[in-house]
Design a protein around this nucleic acid. Sequence first.
DNA 1: ATACAAACTGAAAACGTTTTTTGCAAGTGG
DNA 2: CCACTTGCAAAAAACGTTTTCAGTTTGTAT
Lengths: 338, 338
Amino acid sequence: MTSVGNERNLTIRDVAQRAGVSISTVSRVINGKKVRDELQVNVQRVLNELNFRPSAVARSMVRGRTQTVGVLVEDISSSYYAEMIKGIERILERTGHHPLFKSSHWNLQLEEEALQVFLDHNVDAIVVVGGLISEARLQDLAARMPLVLVGRGGVSVDAPTINLDQRGGAYAATRHLIELGHRQIVHIGGPTTQEDAVARRLGYLDAMSDHGLEVRPDWLCEGDFLETSAFRATMQLIENSTPFTAVFAANDQMALGVTLALHRKGLRVSDDVSVVGFDDLPVSAYVVPPLTTIRQPAQQVGELAAHAAVSLMAGEPAQLAPLELKLIVRESTRALRR
Amino acid sequence: MTSVGNERNLTIRDVAQRAGVSISTVSRVINGKKVRDELQVNVQRVLNELNFRPSAVARSMVRGRTQTVGVLVEDISSSYYAEMIKGIERILERTGHHPLFKSSHWNLQLEEEALQVFLDHNVDAIVVVGGLISEARLQDLAARMPLVLVGRGGVSVDAPTINLDQRGGAYAATRHLIELGHRQIVHIGGPTTQEDAVARRLGYLDAMSDHGLEVRPDWLCEGDFLETSAFRATMQLIENSTPFTAVFAANDQMALGVTLALHRKGLRVSDDVSVVGFDDLPVSAYVVPPLTTIRQPAQQVGELAAHAAVSLMAGEPAQLAPLELKLIVRESTRALRR
DNA sequence: ATACAAACTGAAAACGTTTTTTGCAAGTGG
DNA sequence: CCACTTGCAAAAAACGTTTTCAGTTTGTAT
């Protein structure tokens, strides 16, 4: 039985000795460069026997590249980012790169530290998803190494940027409700510090005003993208007897909060109040009733970002296929009964 | 305005030159070792001016340690693992270690490759969560470096292992239903290749037999831990007119699938059929009706695993506080009306 | 056979640190 | 005043590779 893995920190030198050649030759065999056939097979045999694997660290040292890509997101464990990460994993796996994930938890300092870690570890490229890092800092970074930006709509940084039309998506969500006959539509938004959240609110306002609908101030609520905040906001709304027949929540998690609040107050989703979310989390198709929402192709975003990073690392320009948001109509919305 | 980050691949040598000292002295200052005060401040000044940060790669090379921990899970983007990862992140962040996450997607070969990557990159410790890797291989690994196992109930490997009593949890879930008066209880299990899935099924069977209840063969369904499989199974059950008043699903995702199927068939959860899940995902408290489930303290598991890894790296024995599963009663279960 | 190119191998340098060793100056005890 | 520590900084070795450079062998054409 051959034990798997390098026995105990073998080096290329051990291999060389055992094969009776120089370390250069071993290196060449490992890297598939031309070597006399006889030596080639001999060294290869020893390589297999010892189950030798060259140290990635030493390699990185001399090559100046590490085959790693730093990926900075707000929160690895949040469904939306998790989906994106899946896409990134899938692509990088193929190209032999290794993603290094860090969460910044909506905290600028943590974000900066994570970037520093990436730099210290000499990653070959960085993918920044959202976040609070300043434009100047990003520009600085982009000038020095491959950088891909995701969901940073406004910035004018010299780096490939992947953006989805959040405002348009929100517009479509709101219009859907309007077309169903709703006039009294509440919007529960995300934190105004987040770009996406404000874009979605703008989309909501656009749609309302385009259709000649007045927006009552108390229809504009601010949440934090988590269920509880939307739950509370909705409870308030009902307790204040604010009139509304539909809710557009800025993400699916908050839409769930809304749904639960309605349930608690004895109202039924879609029969009494229509609800639209945003994101299309994997779970959204399975809640009761299945949630009408705007699908963000999170995995594809991740794949696209990874592809862009790979291109950049290869010295090629990144080409970005445009990605679309799409309204997914399920059962949480229905025509207003009158 | 000082630009952030190393200008362009500065080395310790540049610092030394600019400060008029040897590189050894710079190294000592960086590492906080004793140096004449005058030099210390001088070097420190240059260090700040240049915004110098030593190369982690070079450091790893010579120190033989990388400050990284390999973490192998089935699927980063699956809620349960994502929660665990959050716990791991939190702890390792404090100790200055960096987690390197890999997903194996329930595939032995990918799993082996991920381990190989960890080894190649010379991680200081490895955390293996679940998975199919053979016991022998794990033992091999444990002998060579700090290894922490999570959710590998059966193995007798010389490494700290964190396990939750899956069988007991399933027993509690089932007993809860029985105590509510249910007699006809369906179990939708996970894939039998997974340890946790079989343990949960055993717990269900234990509880049934302990209470003198016969289990009809068609009450034992096998799913794949995803919503759809449970949805299909439940639809089948109803279409076959299999009698049941309650369902114990082996995880929350499948419980959602069950719920949706019931909804589709015009049955209402808790009024007509009680449903219990397993995991207590963040979302489970917010679905309608909120799901009764067995809480797995995923974040705590992650924290515990990380702590264990840190101890091991420090050469100390890991101490494992036992973690408990807990029945969380919400609104998806209620006493059988008769 | 001889000169020269081609093909390949081994020695050595390099990557950027930390750590060990060496060297020097100042301090201390007799 | 000498021998001997002590304290500290510089020089050098080491980490495990890849790559450059020089040297050796082999082959080929004259």
